[in-house]
Design a protein around this nucleic acid. Structure first.
Lengths: 264, 264
DNA sequence: AAGTGGTCTAGACCACAAC
DNA sequence: TTGTGGTCTAGACCACTTG
């Protein structure tokens, strides 16, 4: 290892673009390539959520680059929440389970700001059935209209009062065999269950938020008056490589809670 | 410079906590201290928005640390959007002016997703007056109830149709002399005007979002029906050091636009 | 004590922009 | 050509965790 070896690596492309190369040289720094390789391993399931990935030194040896280069690659993965560093212990694959924040993607918080006061949400599954994707569901999930999807409807309550009514649409292929019982029984974030039972890891999401008016059915389920203004939150959640794996349409009551966002 | 000088710097604290030190050693790495010093200079106005800060080499010399350490400090400042790096040119103080995204903190986008299609917002100032801070305004701005604040009410329209009705509250001291004309005449982001005319730089913000129902006055100004569900967006914007400098309460129409958010 | 991530340094070289 | 930020390396040492 200590032998002077200033040179390339297996499977990484260290050559700068040749003179007169393509108009888009697609030059990417070494650490980006390393990041891509680690990403592939994550995606391939070489290390499972919650597990440690190899140490920086090991990865440096594997890819034949310096520790600093691996470090910068991991820095970016950590910044994107794909991986979590723990000093003295190692670097771990991010997981929706055992993450001190119960719901990483849920931005609805009590007006008091005291997250712990209300404890975990109670879930009530209203239905869970196989359907065929409508045009807009298909578009959101990058499928074709008519493809099989699982639709789940449920109500989340805090301290006994309903706060969220939401529909989930999941690609039928990836979530074969998902049942209402499974949705109801698992204690912990739904996304953690997806990781454990289906190997699907949600990595990022986009939300579109609107204000709408509760119709009769919705108001019944949320125990509010018809016409109550509700927050409509449409979320598309993605796995690695920007592959959409869930469409979620939520209606949030905002009389005792609000959607919290930080801008910078 | 090339002389071996493995040692401290003027005004930076390189000593690790002494044995048996305080229970919270408050150890902070060198680059954090450098970051703090740069932050102070930003805050003190040593470099103005849009201007270049000294090069990494210069800062390294000034603080008697290596370029790499300065680099890491600036990395964090860039990650927090306080500063913008431009390869080959330098590092620049972030500004709300001349930033290709017109409104950095405005997350309302047209459903089409095409930001350019509608052009800049038209502003209509309804009023701009000195008032005394109510209890909640005072709390948000870290002032005392009764202190002087400026209140501005305005409507923003896209392509002729009103989309946002908002009230702004600004500390009277910092914004002495702000007039309705000034609010109306400046072309570009309001926060850019704050930088130019008052030396106030908004650096981050927090928003609380709810769904509400338009009352008669609001529906008139937004040209909607009374009872239309609207997005209520309460924003507190901060300068350096987490000092709140603006409270903003906006009502967004979401029939042709939506609030867009990214989660990760 | 050994192993991991975290900090700091010094120096070489590359990519980009401006002159 | 010069100066800027960006990449990469190699090595030393620090802080934290575990045995």
């Amino acid at each position: 290892m200590p032998s002077p070896q200033p040179l390339p690596a297996a499977s990484v492309d260290r050559a700068p673009p040749a003179a007169g190369a393509s108009p888009t040289p697609a030059f990417s720094p070494l650490y980006q390539q390393i990041k891509g390789l680690i990403l592939q391993s994550l995606q391939a399931g070489e290390w499972k959520p919650g597990e440690a990935i190899p140490s920086e030194m090991e990865l440096a040896a594997r890819f034949r680059v310096s520790q600093g280069t691996v470090r910068k690659a991991i820095d970016e993965l950590a910044a994107e929440n794909l991986v979590v560093r723990r000093q003295g212990k190692g670097t771990f694959v991010a997981t929706h389970a055992e993450q001190h924040v119960q719901y990483r993607f849920l931005k609805l918080v009590p007006d008091s700001g005291d997250l712990d006061s209300e404890g975990p949400a109670q879930r009530h599954i209203i239905e869970c059935r196989r359907v065929r994707a409508s045009a807009d569901v298909a578009r959101a999930l990058a499928m074709r209209p008519g493809d099989a999807v699982l639709q789940v409807r449920r109500v989340l309550s805090f301290g006994g009062t309903p706060a969220i009514l939401e529909d989930l649409w999941l690609p039928g292929n990836a979530f074969k065999g998902l049942t209402a019982e499974q949705m109801a029984d698992y204690h912990g974030p739904t996304y953690a269950m997806f990781e454990l039972d289906f190997g699907v890891r949600m990595v990022r999401a986009e939300e579109k938020i609107r204000a709408v008016s509760a119709d009769s059915g919705q108001s019944l389920l949320l125990k509010t008056e018809q016409g109550t203004p509700l927050l409509s939150v449409e979320r598309v959640a993605y796995t690695y490589n920007d592959v959409p794996m869930e469409l979620r349409r939520g209606l949030y009551r905002t009389d005792t809670h609000h959607y919290r966002n930080e801008l910078s």
